[in-house]
């Protein structure tokens, strides 16, 4: 597998991480080394193997449908970068 510089920029944008040309080149070199190591997996025969998503073979436990939370927005918003009238403020959302 070869990861191109363009792909590095594409995934950086997908991950919303600003990356300049110098960083992209540097990251590109390191990611290539990492993927060379990861590519070892491609040689493994996994025919018929069930993927393992969880460390324990368990099923979900559920909670009853009850309201257990109270309004704590003032407390939660103490660490917010920008709030007004109880709303989180962000740069204009365009649809």
């Amino acid at each position: 597998m070869t990861l191109t510089l363009d792909e590095v920029r594409r995934i950086a944008h997908l991950a919303r991480i600003e990356i300049d040309a110098r960083e992209a080149a540097e990251v590109h070199a390191k990611l290539e080394a990492i993927f060379t190591m990861i590519d070892e997996l491609q040689a493994v025969d996994t025919t018929g193997v069930e993927p393992m998503s969880h460390a324990q073979d368990v099923v979900l436990t559920m909670r009853e449908d009850r309201v257990t939370e109270t309004d704590r927005h003032a407390e939660y918003q103490r660490v917010a970068p920008a709030v007004e009238d109880g709303l989180y403020l962000v740069p204009r959302v365009v649809e």
Binding site: R63, D65, R66, V67, E69, H73, Y76, G86, L87
Partner: peptide, 24 residues
């Protein structure tokens, strides 16, 4: 039409003041 949210115990009622029904 549940009383609480799908993954938290916050209420689902419509029309509350902003973020007063948003749990951690």
């Amino acid at each position: 039409s549940t009383a609480s949210k799908i993954f938290s115990g916050a209420p689902t009622a419509f029309g509350a003041a902003p973020n007063t029904q948003a749990s951690a």
